[in-house]
Amino acid sequence: MAKITVTVNGSTHTSTVEDRTLLVHFLREQLNLTGTHVGCDTSQCGACVVLVDGKSVKSCTTLAARCDGASVTTIEGLSTDGSMHPLQEGFWECHGLQCGFCTPGMIMAATDLLAQNPNPTDDEIRHGLEGNLCRCTGYHNIVRSVQYAAAKMRGEAVSSQNA
């Protein structure tokens, strides 16, 4: 067993986990943060993407024990004071989801993308989200959603029409 102290969405948790516990199971089953999804479970689909120390990782392929001392951000940690993060708002406004299963991973990967590149082209968004699979929307509206968020985060006026 491993004793780990992890800061998740700003709250510090000290927990005992099995050495083999994967980060996604720690988040979902011990912290009840079920917004992070298990999709393919083979590190291809990206439904489980979270930020560890600001970098996007696939939490189905990350050991919880490795995250001792780390800071983790999940989809539940994005909104502040009840108002949506620009990415959440973008996915809402631009119809960036249908079933929503891939959405938490898409948004967390996009968070990392926009932190590195606040003004991405559509191609850069598609390339940056290549680790996330969506089986509903065909990606077009996901790209628009990220453009909406990017514009809003740059302080520009936004609407779902011009994103």
Binding site: S43, V49, S56, V57, K58, T62, A109, D112, G128, G131
Partner: peptide, 9 residues
């Protein structure tokens, strides 16, 4: 290689 999450790891 892979995708950005793979490249981060």
């Amino acid at each position: 290689i892979g995708d950005i999450q793979v490249r981060n790891a």
